[in-house]
Amino acid sequence: AYGGLEHKKSSSLICSRKELPTENKPEIDSDYTRFLALCSHEYFHAWWIKTIKPASFHALNLGRENYTEQLWVFEGFTSYYDELSLLRTKLLSPEQYLTLFAQTVTRVQKSQGRHKQSLAESSFDAWTKFYQQDENAPNAIVSYYTKGALLAFVLDIEIRSRSHDAQSLDDVLKLIWVNYQDTGLEDDTVQKVVAHLTQSDFTKFFDDYLYG
């Protein structure tokens, strides 16, 4: 079993014993890296879903499903930053990071469901499809975690390219943090913040990668 669940002031983490460090295995190998990425992911959620969240999540009805198109933002962006944070803190070497990133690309490319379902649809249909997968799931759906992480990467690169490396996805998150803690995000808030930050039209970008 492997996974995590974020809470406001804590998180629940499930991993294999082999993924934990021991006296005889102090180095950061692939098993321990998997655990660190899980910790990083859930820690990031303290800001990105438990504080900044979809506007509709400010009045949750816990007695029923709560639908949103924004899981690509909150889980996808988190999945991008969890391993990137390990690289930035030098817990991963560039080579280790690129190996993990290549694995994410491979998982998305191997999923035939990416041709059937957009990221926005994947987010909205999470209750009925992602969490109720059957044997045909790889052919019918795409993960908003992995493909969302790739969208975050491509968006980061595109922002850096258009701004001549003066701005990045980090700056988008900073603006959102300053301005949207009380109100939450609407489905198009990220798109609007990116356009405002860069003074550039990203309509085609999101049409292609989010809705396409």
Rank of each mutant, 00 (worst) to 15 (best):
G76L: 07
A46S: 14
A1Q: 13
A149C: 03
I14Q: 02
D182K: 12
H7K: 09
L86R: 00
W127P: 09
V108S: 08
S93A: 05
K50T: 11
D171N: 10
S30M: 03
V172G: 07
S12I: 03
S56M: 12
E6C: 10
A137V: 00
E6H: 05
D187A: 06
L175Y: 08
G113A: 04
A46T: 05
R34Y: 10
Q117Y: 04
D125L: 10
Y97Q: 08
P94M: 10
Q112D: 15
K129D: 14
L185P: 00
G113M: 01
Q132S: 13
T22I: 03
R88C: 10
T51P: 00
H196I: 10
Q199I: 01
E135M: 11
A149H: 04
S30Y: 07
R162H: 05
L92D: 11
L185Q: 11
Q199E: 14
D31Q: 13
L98C: 03
Q117N: 06
T146L: 09
I49Q: 10
S111K: 13
Q191T: 04
A140P: 00
T89K: 11
E83K: 15
Y32V: 06
R64H: 10
A140S: 08
Q103A: 15
V178S: 07
D188F: 05
F206V: 04
A37D: 12
H196W: 02
Y131F: 14
L5Y: 15
S11N: 07
L100V: 00
G113H: 06
D31K: 05
V154Q: 10
Y2S: 06
T78D: 05
I52N: 08
W177T: 03
G184E: 13
L91A: 02
T203P: 09
C15L: 11
E95P: 13
L98A: 12
D187P: 02
I28W: 04
D170P: 01
A37Y: 02
A55H: 13
A126K: 14
N139S: 11
S161N: 12
R34D: 14
N179L: 07
Q167H: 04
V105D: 06
L91Y: 09
W48K: 02
L119W: 14
P26I: 11
K129C: 12
P26V: 11
D31V: 08
K50F: 09
